[in-house]
Amino acid sequence: MIDFYEHIEAYIEGTLSPDLVTQMKTAISKDKSLKQAVADYPIAKTLSESLIEHEVREILSETKTTDNEKGRSGAWIIAITLLAALAVSYYQWNRHNRQEIIHNRIMASYTPPVSEGTRSSTSVASESNLKSAIQAFDLRQFDQSKEILEKLSPKNDSIYYYLAHIALIENKIGKAKSYERKISTLELKKDLTKYLSEF
């Protein structure tokens, strides 16, 4: 039995033998599906011709998707980094703000010490400089006092005590605490701790 479907192309192209053409025509007149198939054959052939293009475009689209995914993961990394930076900035800002509030509260009732430090020093010159620094401090000339105190060497409890107070006034709490830790005289240390422990 002849499978007429196998001969549609040859029938359309006119390459079928005359005998088969006659048989084909008879079959088409009797078989509606075959008639439809002959009519649709050019469409089916064009669809088949699109298959290579379809395959290539699918691969190109996959490549594009992979690139996009790479781009997306890159964007995620940037977003996470930005969020982390934002969180750190917020934490620092919040810490600074909190420190500012505490500092303002302390400064509201803060009274700078008056000639609290021991003025003993290793040399006459140092003794004189320390005296000048404390006098400047008493006169609220903190910058001048600091400048002299920082130059003095070797350091002693008095120097650290005044430097800690100046740092506290300047709201440089980390620095103030570091000076406070170097003081061995309990009384002087205690005077600073009452303020610094609040931070």
Binding site: E6, S33, Q36, D40, I43, T46, S48
Partner: peptide, 24 residues
């Protein structure tokens, strides 16, 4: 190839709207 072509032709016969949309 013949089987596959027949399948494709049957598919097209069942879906006239697709042929219209393709407008080949």
């Amino acid at each position: 190839k013949s089987e596959c072509m027949k399948e494709l032709l049957t598919y097209l016969a069942d879906k006239p709207h697709i042929k219209q949309q393709l407008s080949i």
